[in-house]
């Protein structure tokens, strides 16, 4: 008798180790994101954002996209959050609880977000409930693979992006430069 081939679509009741890890880290990420958008303490929101973005980096690692995970840690956790903290500091955000962190349209926002979540999750679940990601074999996002595709197939967008980054840098400097007295923008 031949051994039965493993089914192409294992059920949800027998999760693999990767799936369990993905689920747990996903719950932490989602919880951190929810706290980050609901907390009344502005600085804590930025710190919870670090947890959410770091959790996403772990999710990338679990999906074998190794290079993107480290880019995520470097750029998001390393610089974007620091930039946001500097922004909070420079706009004199209050330390401690600020009761007016949420605007008046909070119920409407909650309704819109809940409706969008219900619709999106329903559609996505219905469409991809039978799809299975095969994570076996060589890693698909290792630094070697990513470097090769980036500089073999995506060179032109890459260079265009570097020009855009330079333009953004110059724009940010021009916008935040202090104007001399008497000159107004």
């Amino acid at each position: 008798m031949i051994l039965a081939a493993p089914p192409a679509h294992p059920g949800f009741l027998s999760p693999t180790g990767v799936e369990v890890a993905f689920l747990l880290v996903g719950l932490v990420t989602l919880g951190a994101a929810v706290v980050s958008v609901t907390t009344k303490q502005l600085v804590h929101a930025a710190l919870w954002l670090v947890v959410a973005l770091g959790g996403l980096a772990v999710e990338y690692l679990l999906l074998t996209a190794e290079f993107i995970a480290w880019v995520q840690v470097l750029i998001y956790v390393g610089s974007v959050v620091v930039l946001l903290l500097f922004g909070l500091m420079l706009t004199r955000a209050p330390i401690g609880r600020s009761p007016d962190a949420d605007s008046g349209n909070r119920p409407v926002a909650l309704a819109v977000a809940a409706a969008a979540a219900a619709a999106l999750v329903w559609v996505v679940w219905d469409a991809f409930r039978k799809s299975w990601i095969d994570l076996e074999g060589p890693a698909q996002g290792s630094t070697g693979v990513t470097g090769e595709i980036l500089f073999r197939h995506w060179v032109l967008p890459f260079e265009a992006l570097s020009v855009l980054l330079l333009a953004a840098l110059v724009g940010a400097i021009v916008l935040s430069r202090k104007k001399p007295e008497g000159e107004r923008d």
Binding site: F12, T16, V18, F22, V121, V124, W125, F128, R129, I133
Partner: peptide, 15 residues
């Protein structure tokens, strides 16, 4: 891994 896990997590994070 089921594709549904990352897809649903992404949808929820977006919302």
């Amino acid at each position: 891994m089921h594709l549904a896990y990352p897809a649903v997590l992404a949808a929820l994070l977006f919302c």
